[in-house]
Amino acid sequence: MTAKPAPSIRVDLQLIAQMIEANSRVLDVGCGDGMLLAYLWHVKNVDGRGIELSSEGVNACVSAGLSVIQGDADTDLADYPDAAFDYVVLSQTLQAMRAPRQVLIELLRIGKHAIVSMPNFAHWRLRLALLFTGRMPRNRVLAEAWHDTPSIHLCTIRDFVALCESIGITVERSLFLNDQGSPSHFGRSLALANLLGEQAVFMLSSRKKAPNA
């Protein structure tokens, strides 16, 4: 297993992978073609599982030897028992959920930690684009037109942090990517991150102690 070269993965997935300890149990919700799961398996010996909506994604994952089910995060998370995983990952998917608030609560019921990555709708380029063009802004991360996009619940970094606060979720760590795709802390200023961060990665935990923790 260790003989395999580490697959190269997207920067935001690297940030997520950094947050995950070796040999842990991970559920990747909306795992796509399994890039993160494969990386975690080969590099960190993680016991990984995935849920993916698209059958192309699922076929690719299972064909690559990953444990992935075809399912819908909006409905299928309810099946899993409490604290079944060390980490539940939701990468670039929250904005496509029908009920993001409920999904967040479910993530932290199933996992001791949740790791959520999301595009920031308050990035300055998007703000300016809306101001000057008067059209729904698009960028690398939010590439589709408004009528085509699966992103039905876009939010900003500050929106997300506010939601976490209101439902008793602690943000343990946050990392941001600027529009060059490089990680930055923006001097640990949330307001600055909300302006300059194109994407954000949060590690979350429940404020209440999990029963087994």
Binding site: D47, R49, S55, V58, N59, C61, V62, L66, S67, V68, I69, Q70, G71, D76, D79, Y80, P81, A84, F85
Partner: peptide, 21 residues
Amino acid sequence: SRRIVHALNAVAANVSFAEIV
């Protein structure tokens, strides 16, 4: 099949599930 998958998820079993077109 999905019913079985749900049961396996409920015990956090290691499960893959694909529906082939």
